[in-house]
Computed example of a mutant assay.
Amino acid sequence: MTSTINLAPTEEVGRVEATEKRRVHRRGVVEYAAWMVCVLVGVGVAYTLVTNENYQWGVVAQYFTAPTVLKGLVLTLVLTAMTMFFGTILGLVIAILRVSKVRPVMLLASGYITFFRGTPVLVQLIFWFNIAALYPNIRIGIPFTDVSRALDINALMSATTAAIVGLSLNVAAYLAEIIRGGFASVDKGQLEAADSLGMSGRTKLWRIIIPQSMPSVVPAVGNQVIGMFKETSLVSVLGVAELLQSVQLIYARTYQTIPLLIVACLWYLLMTVALSYPQSLIEKKYSRSRSRVATGVGQPQIPLDATLGSEAR
């Protein structure tokens, strides 16, 4: 008969969780006072929203689903998706270079991160929009041959292109640090085990480091997506007809500034809540996986005779 060693105290963990659920939260005077203050503040805000006619809620309802506003919202979502796509790819590359043992490569990645994190994103957007002042034409081709093609940067770098380039390069610097932090969270024992198996650096990166860093990286990237959705409002200075620029074009014609800004705020708020829900699900998923690893729940059982046999050998 083969006996086994249980690596996870499942019953004990279950008793602890049941005890945590049975705990009763006792409310004190401070909590009741805090609830009263919150209710009073909420009632006051609701009262002024209803009674102040300057909010012009009829105008808000009129323009909330206006075609111009919806087109701006769609463009905002497209900008967010494209920026995060290119930024994630570039950020992963920079993070890999950042942890490289080749010092010039590591310094180059560090310089990139320092520059794009140390300068305002608005300044970067304006810079890329006016990059043709520095390089009006760029010739791309094969060195030492006549095979080349000239590119007109002034025609190529439109407002939308400058917005995607500027936001992608900026968010890549932040994502690189997020991914690098995820790399650092991988247990060193896993890396030593990979080295003992003779894995190459590339195999170790794609099979060990990247998969095991996902629990730390994915929730932070989710926060970055929400931040980028709101950060796209900065491209309105370039004339890109995203959500903010769309409402600005309307109130420049109708002079109904406050109601149109409320429309933009409501759409930003609704989309932020919509993006926060899947992010919370992802965070719960990875938090459960971390707790299982920490407590040993769900870990496999090793046959005792197999363990003794390996020790004897």
Rank of each mutant, 00 (worst) to 15 (best):
W35H: 02
V225E: 00
S185Q: 03
M214L: 15
V60H: 09
C265R: 10
E283Q: 05
I164L: 00
V24H: 12
S246V: 07
P136M: 10
A33P: 02
T83K: 08
L167R: 00
V293N: 13
Y63F: 10
I210Q: 06
V247D: 08
M84A: 00
I142S: 01
I94M: 08
I226E: 12
D195L: 12
H25Q: 12
P104G: 03
W206N: 10
Y255P: 03
V60M: 04
L79K: 04
M214Q: 06
V171C: 00
K101V: 15
M106V: 06
Y47G: 09
L249S: 15
M84D: 06
M1N: 06
L151D: 05
A133Q: 14
W128F: 08
L304E: 12
G72D: 05
V45R: 08
V263Y: 11
I250T: 12
R180M: 02
A61T: 13
D152L: 07
A241G: 13
G181T: 02
L244S: 01
Y32F: 11
V99M: 02
M84Q: 11
L261N: 08
R15A: 15
V50E: 11
V41G: 01
T48Y: 12
V225Q: 01
G58W: 11
V69R: 03
W128A: 03
V186H: 06
T80Y: 07
I210Y: 05
P104A: 09
L40S: 14
G296V: 05
Y112A: 08
R15I: 12
R292E: 13
L151R: 01
A306D: 15
L197H: 02
A132I: 04
S289K: 15
V240S: 07
N130H: 03
V13M: 01
G111I: 09
T80H: 01
A220F: 11
Q224L: 02
V41M: 11
W57R: 07
Q124I: 08
G72V: 04
T232E: 00
V297G: 09
V93P: 08
K188Y: 12
S236N: 09
L197G: 06
Q248C: 02
N223T: 04
Y47L: 10
G189N: 04
A34M: 09
K284N: 14
V237Q: 04
V102W: 15
L97Y: 03
R180S: 03
V186F: 00
A61F: 14
I153G: 04
M214Y: 07
I179P: 04
S289V: 13
S168Q: 05
P215W: 10
I131R: 01
V69E: 08
Q299G: 13
P211F: 03
S291Y: 14
Y268R: 05
R290C: 10
V102F: 12
S233I: 08
Y174R: 04
F86K: 06
V225G: 09
L191V: 04
T76W: 06
R180D: 05
Q256T: 10
A163G: 10
R253H: 09
Q56C: 00
M214I: 15
Q224P: 02
S310N: 15
V74R: 14
L275R: 05
F183G: 00
R139M: 10
